[in-house]
Design a protein around this nucleic acid. Sequence first.
DNA 1: TTCCATGCAAACACTTTGCACCGTG
DNA 2: CACGGTGCAAAGTGTTTGCATGGAA
Lengths: 152, 152
Amino acid sequence: MREELRARLRDSGLRLTPQRELILDAVQHLGHATPDEVLAHVRTTSSAVNLSTVYRTLEVLEDVGLIRHAHLADRAPTYHAVTDHEHFHLVCRNCGRTISVDTHVARGFAARLRELHGFEADLPHLTVFGTCCAADPSDHPDHPDPDPGSHA
Amino acid sequence: MREELRARLRDSGLRLTPQRELILDAVQHLGHATPDEVLAHVRTTSSAVNLSTVYRTLEVLEDVGLIRHAHLADRAPTYHAVTDHEHFHLVCRNCGRTISVDTHVARGFAARLRELHGFEADLPHLTVFGTCCAADPSDHPDHPDPDPGSHA
DNA sequence: TTCCATGCAAACACTTTGCACCGTG
DNA sequence: CACGGTGCAAAGTGTTTGCATGGAA
């Protein structure tokens, strides 16, 4: 993996650094993580890295195509490795849970947008808000209110 | 319309104020507007209103069901009146344009999510990023880079 | 006359930037 | 040893909050 990373970076004239390796590892390990969570994880596995480095590195890793991001809540971009199978997200406003769905489920929808509007949807970036159950947030204490506002 | 607003507010034990009227008018007039744009518009049609009042009022208007919001760019909630026909949005990363699409186009997609995951999608809140053309941003100078990052 | 709403300013959370030093290639 | 990367601290955005005053019902 390190060599894959090194190669991708080199192709863009960029360098492999321990921080970039650590941050990529963190993203791969965490699944869907915010910059803050990435930082927290890196700090457990190793010495400190600066928050601004995390931001800059996540951008670089996305540029070279190794990670992607989606907006699972109003103020929280989350990053995940592209090696995961292609998926998009459903976010429940009641219980706060996030469901990953294979992009093939949205293929028909994407085809329709293509026909009607000549629009090529970026499915892996898609996040659909809604409700998966009637339970209230207290059932999932870890997931505070994602994107409220919408006349829930 | 003022009476509709007054009624909705009263039902929640809230009051009709000139600011609330002005802000609702602005949202209806602008179509899709950010809090800043709403403020700017209110200021052209009338005396000043405070930004924090705009935020608080947009929240209230959404709570009573008169407006809704969607995320057309990374850090930019835009509000629109619910009286518009139900629609969701396509945002092109190349030209920056926003396309409104009737929610019935996504009905099949929503049905699939319901079957597979028991998930009820909030279609009017949906925003799909992608590309509608090969043109670069310079073609639409008014629309700066919506949600970049995603390995464009 | 009672609360709700507003304005103002400060506080906030998140992200970006400038700059000097460090380290990869 | 050149140039890209990092850390640190400061500056930005966009949004929220506390509090005293103002106004709708």
